[in-house]
Write a protein that binds this DNA or RNA. Structure first.
Length: 804
RNA sequence: GCCCGGGUGGUGGAAUGGUAGACACGAAGGACUUAAAAUCCUUUGACGCAAGUUGUGUGGGUUCGAGUCCCACCCCGGGCACCA
């Protein structure tokens, strides 16, 4: 090719062109194909915020896109869909502030997100996209809740929420500052509100044992185990001097003889009973303490570094069932009512927190010389061995507008009934005002024509509408944002099915998620809830695998320039559109891939983007150095031939890039391609096959520019009507292990562990030969001299260490 | 506080217990140019003219050899159940 034929690299034209061509050719549409192995690549779906996509999204979605593109080229049938987790607080608060129906702002935001993601060349099958706020989707969220309900896994309960008495609204923990309302500064109370609770604890054991078989990072598995928090212990009954009994939970029944006091959680029902019956001499002091504790957070209460607080219940003793000894009874905030039994036997000599407490309150400390046999002592005092979990039941209700309505109605006596399938979806109605009612109920409560519904209970015991039936009242709580995100990926498999949440045969083909990418902040809750629903659906034989996510990859944050978390307030949010405008999408994708390990946080640095851009331009310009016909390196040219070195480097590069992509270590894969180019580009001519290999390796990260060059290399094959030959449909390069081995290696000489010299020698030379060469080196003679070494260690292809 | 991560040049970051700093950004010098940009070449952890010394948060330890393993500590990030 002549110089004047060179076309400069113009990302804007290229990127628009290929985005359209790919979409017209349905390049990323997924269909069941039983001749291929399926590969479900899943991103944690975004909440479509008004700010649009930020750099963190580009990092997560980019990672899975690179992975999915490689997998397609490797012959897998990839399912890759994106959806929107669009219920939730920000849309609602926007609605309250601007009096706009969240449907409208959500639609706008969603469209913007999709435009941005298309522009980034993310290879989603958009025909399968879902939105949790779409009645066609939440019909099935409600349906799953119904199955849980019918299985007895849901119950009503009055659970405390943070209540701001002056704003007259419930607050999220996030909205608190030092126990005060972030907005108005009032002291926040705990107010019990009627809620729906799902018995996730019934699945504690399954959730725990399921962790073992997951191909997840050990640290995240450990976080899941700790969240579930299984502990084996005993429940032992104690009698009070006032004749009531209570049960303590202890993991150390063997220390029962060391128990010198007992502690109740301040909220414990028995304390209330004792107070009501005036059995506590210092009742006022106790009441005062209970009030103080009411507004403390759990973190505050259980922090072991903090000074212990509590109040002795004067006039009340507990009797240790092991030795009938009377011990004092306290209430203290370090005992939680929702863990164990809300009461403990305290053994200060053998428990750190009990020890701190006992020291402060001057309670007897009995050091035990021998421990009892756990089972025997429990049997002797009439207790029983039990298993407890830290995992708590799931408060599954919000007193807000923008969430899925429950498929539940009540009769006039507040007896709940689940609605019949024909009633689904229960549509979220439009309201005048999005503010919660002044008594903490959802705004739905005020829509009489929605709440009141005439109907009857059918033979299944389910509610059916009937104009002539009696009045029922709809549940006005809505579901938390967790609901839709606990099963959305299943819907990707069969998104338009209006008969089932997912067809069994279809679900069987796509099966579990092969790789799930998302933020570390979801390592416990989202993943526990998702696993729970999935296990439940498996038990109901609705789906075919018990665990939803075969492999999980936690992707680190992108921090703003200056190393702070990106936030609107700090003004350091990076919008991918802006970067794409200046440098092009391929450069943006390459920059993000190259900036650091995907699993770690990294700091955005706009200045550093020129590096990736320069790299792409070098690749671009290399197409004008292609030599025809290609010259293949010949073996006869020997070890020192630059062609042999390049061939080795080519095979090393295919190997490293393939392995690194598989592990999502894109930064080192890119570094390897840069190394390859640095060596290759020194030559006057480039051989076509090696260049095409490089383009294929780069294609998952830079889909546009590689496609453009590919087209110019193989013009006859491209853009045919409906039958384009895209680089993204090419076969992934293969390498030959033997060809990856360097012919020559560098050996380091260490004298007493210090590096003194290096030399090169044929790979796999025998130790004696290596040593012989080493001994004749100047540096060796200089540092060793005539001294007889104590020991010489030779590590093949690496090092010679001489110990003097 | 508890659980899970992390700490390496001016910067982002590489390193199956075996030559610390790959790759890139930045910087300095040079080539090309009337000039600038772009591009190319050279240098670039620190100290030192050099030989060399020193260096992966801190202090100990194991080892022929430690960024990597062990112990103690300091600092930073994520999670702690109504942000999701």
């Amino acid at each position: 090719m002549k110089m004047q034929d060179k076309i400069p690299y113009e990302p804007k034209d290229i990127e628009k062109k290929w985005q359209d061509v790919w979409e017209k050719n349905n390049l990323y549409k997924s269909e069941i194909d039983k001749t291929k192995t399926k590969m479900h690549v899943l991103d944690m779906f975004p909440y479509p915020s008004g700010e649009g996509l930020h750099a963190g999204h580009a990092k997560i979605f980019g990672a899975s896109d690179i992975y999915a593109r490689m997998k397609r080229m490797q012959g897998f049938n990839v399912l890759k869909v994106q959806g929107y987790d669009a219920f939730g607080l920000p849309a609602e608060q926007f609605a309250i502030k601007n009096k706009v129906n969240p449907k409208i702002s959500t639609k706008k935001n969603t469209e913007n997100f999709e435009r941005q993601m298309r522009r980034l060349g993310l290879s989603y099958d958009w025909s399968r996209s879902v939105n949790t706020t779409d009645p066609k989707f939440y019909k099935w969220t409600q349906w799953i809740f119904k199955q849980l309900y019918k299985d007895g896994l849901c119950f009503e309960s009055h659970e405390p929420i943070n209540w701001c008495p002056s704003c007259k609204t419930g607050l999220a923990n996030e909205d608190l500052e030092d126990g005060k309302c972030e907005r108005c500064g009032s002291v926040v109370e705990k107010k019990p509100i009627r809620q729906w609770v799902i018995k996730i604890t019934d699945y504690a054991e399954k959730l725990l044992s399921g962790v073992d078989n997951l191909n997840w990072k050990e640290s995240i598995k450990e976080m899941q185990r700790n969240w579930i928090g299984k502990s084996e212990g005993a429940e032992i009954d104690f009698r009070l001097s006032t004749s009531q009994t209570f049960t303590v939970f202890t993991t150390r029944p063997d220390t029962l003889f060391g128990c010198t006091y007992c502690v109740f959680a301040p909220e414990n029902k028995l304390v209330e009973e004792l107070l009501n019956n005036n059995l506590i001499n210092n009742g006022n002091e106790v009441k005062k303490y209970i009030l103080e504790v009411k507004d403390k957070s759990e973190i505050e209460r259980t922090s072991s570094g903090k000074e212990k607080t509590g109040v002795k219940l004067e006039g009340v003793f507990a009797i240790n069932p092991a030795n009938q000894k009377e011990v004092p009874v306290y209430i203290a905030d370090y005992v939680l009512n929702n863990y164990g039994t809300g009461a403990i036997m305290a053994v200060p000599a053998h428990d750190e927190r009990d020890f701190e407490f006992a020291k402060k309150f001057d309670i007897e400390i009995i050091e035990l010389e021998k421990f009892e046999d756990k089972n025997e002592i429990v049997k002797k005092v009439g207790g029983k061995m039990v298993t407890k979990y830290k995992l708590r039941d799931w408060v599954f209700a919000r007193q807000r507008y923008w969430g899925e309505p429950f498929p539940i109605v009540f009769d006039e006596n507040h007896n709940p009934f689940v609605v019949a399938d024909s009633e689904l979806p229960v549509i979220l109605p439009d309201v005048e005002s999005y503010e919660p009612t002044g008594d903490g109920e959802s705004p739905l409560k005020n829509i009489q024509e929605w709440v009141e519904v005439n109907g009857k209970i059918n033979s299944e015991g389910e509610f059916e509408s009937d104009e002539n039936g009696k009045i029922f009242y709809r549940e006005t709580n809505t579901m938390p944002q967790w609901a839709g995100s606990s099963w959305y990926w299943l819907r990707y498999m069969d998104p338009h099915n209006d008969q089932e949440m997912v067809n069994k045969e279809i679900e069987k083909y796509w099966g579990d998620v092969d790789i799930y990418l998302g933020g570390m902040e979801h390592a416990t809750r989202h993943l526990i809830y998702g696993r729970f629903w999935n296990q439940f659906l498996f038990d109901k034989k609705i789906i075919s695998t018990p665990e939803p996510f075969k492999r999980l990859e936690a992707v680190g944050l992108v921090l703003g320039e200056g190393g702070m978390k990106m936030s609107k307030r700090l003004g350091n949010v990076i919008n991918p559109d802006d970067i794409a405008d200046i440098f092009g999408v391929d450069t943006l994708r390459l920059y993000i891939a190259f900036a650091g390990d995907y699993h770690d946080d990294y700091t955005w640095d706009t200045k550093a983007i020129v590096g990736p851009r320069r790299f792409i331009e070098r690749v671009w310009n290399m197409q004008y150095k292609i030599q025809t016909p290609p010259s293949l390196p010949s073996i006869e040219e020997g070890n020192s031939s630059p062609n042999i070195k390049l061939t080795t480097l080519l095979h090393q590069t295919i190997k490293k890039v393939s392995n690194d992509y598989e592990k999502l270590q894109f930064n080192t894969a890119v570094a390897q391609m840069m190394t390859f180019i640095n060596a290759y580009d020194k030559n006057e001519n480039i051989d076509l096959e090696s260049y095409k290999t490089l383009l294929k390796l780069l294609a998952p990260i830079c889909p546009f520019v590689t496609e453009e060059i590919w087209e110019s290399l193989t013009p006859a094959l491209s853009i045919g009507e409906g039958a384009m030959q895209s680089i993204h449909q090419e076969e992934w390069p293969k390498y030959d292990e033997l060809q990856t081995i360097d012919k020559v290696v560098n050996i380091a000489i260490q004298i007493n562990g210090k590096l003194r010299d290096t030399f090169s020698i044929a790979t796999d030379s025998p130790d004696v030969e290596v040593l012989e060469v080493a001994k004749n080196r100047e540096q060796y003679k200089k540092w060793v001299g005539e001294v007889e070494p104590k020991k010489i260690i030779v590590i093949k292809n690496k090092i010679v260490n001489v110990v003097l």
